[in-house]
Nucleic acid binder design. Structure first.
Lengths: 152, 152
DNA sequence: CTCCATTCGTTGGTGCGGCCAACGATAGGG
DNA sequence: CCCTATCGTTGGCCGCACCAACGAATGGAG
């Protein structure tokens, strides 16, 4: 069956645009939920990395969560101010700061996790469960290919 | 069959992160190709809208290409400086500027189109033709749902 | 015909995410 | 011991998206 579509607006054929545009919507949703929790994307990424892989130096954190060292500085400072992480001097290497997630930080992480789950539902609303899985799988494949996820 | 995966790194389960991250890669590719052509994302969107729907006022252009009026001003000014569009006073409404794409502008659009096709291939490299179609379809569905594409 | 609300172009500013250059301090291998 | 690499930090830049406000112009209601 050939359905005549209303001209797919050339943009709609460009994956790069589709992805960027979807990211815009996603960011909007995330921003809404996160500002309510007084957090930003970087915060979640740092907290998640800390919980998954344990305390680490800031440089190491940057590698794990794919952030620039300088951005880690700012984010850690903010998280520290909120009491979600602690900076301590690394005794074995005085160049390093060991960053540790606090109890409150773990709680914040849980909070943000819930926010992201809500976002998930809003963002993927028009997709069936199967489609959602497919989308996540495809995107995962892409990211895996392009530099991959910090998995160790 | 149960394959033991290396712990999907909680981030990899968050669609919002997957999308944002994929967008980052996409943006990087696009930026590479576009800076070579001395263009930016906004430029493509404007040129594409102009070619598809014809000359329009800046406000109208903003609606078509989902940009803020103020950003349209800047982008049109740049495109005008490059000779890709022309600003002319609308005789029927002196508030409006009628923006028209030039011959050179159309050529630039073709150029950028080719760039985006190249980006497409790099970005979607790990996906089969079928998977690419699926991905595009799913993303299209999402965008359609959230505000949709400027199709008229 | 006179108001009033609306639209348009424009200016200027905000925020996030991502990046780069440079610095002083420290570590560590040749 | 020197040289290179790493670490934290500062300061800056870019792209994209968005908002507030302004004067100029429009158009409809009374």
């Amino acid at each position: 069956m050939v359905t005549v579509e209303p001209t797919p607006s050339r943009l709609a054929t460009k994956a790069s645009w589709l992805i960027s545009q979807t990211a815009v919507h996603s960011r909007r949703f995330v921003a809404e939920g996160f500002t309510a929790a007084d957090a930003r994307g970087y915060h979640y990424r740092l907290l998640a990395a800390l919980e998954e892989f344990g305390p680490a130096s800031q440089a190491e954190l940057g590698r794990r969560s794919r952030m620039d060292r300088s951005d880690v500085v700012a984010a850690v400072t903010e998280l520290e101010g909120q009491g979600f992480v602690e900076r301590s001097a690394d005794p074995t290497d005085r160049r390093r700061n060991t960053v540790t997630i606090t109890r409150a930080g773990t709680q914040q992480l849980r909070r943000l996790d819930r926010v992201l789950d809500t976002v998930q539902d809003e963002l993927l609303a028009p997709l069936s469960a199967t489609e959602r899985q497919t989308l996540v799988a495809l995107l995962g494949k892409l990211i895996e290919h392009h530099g991959g996820v910090p998995t160790s």
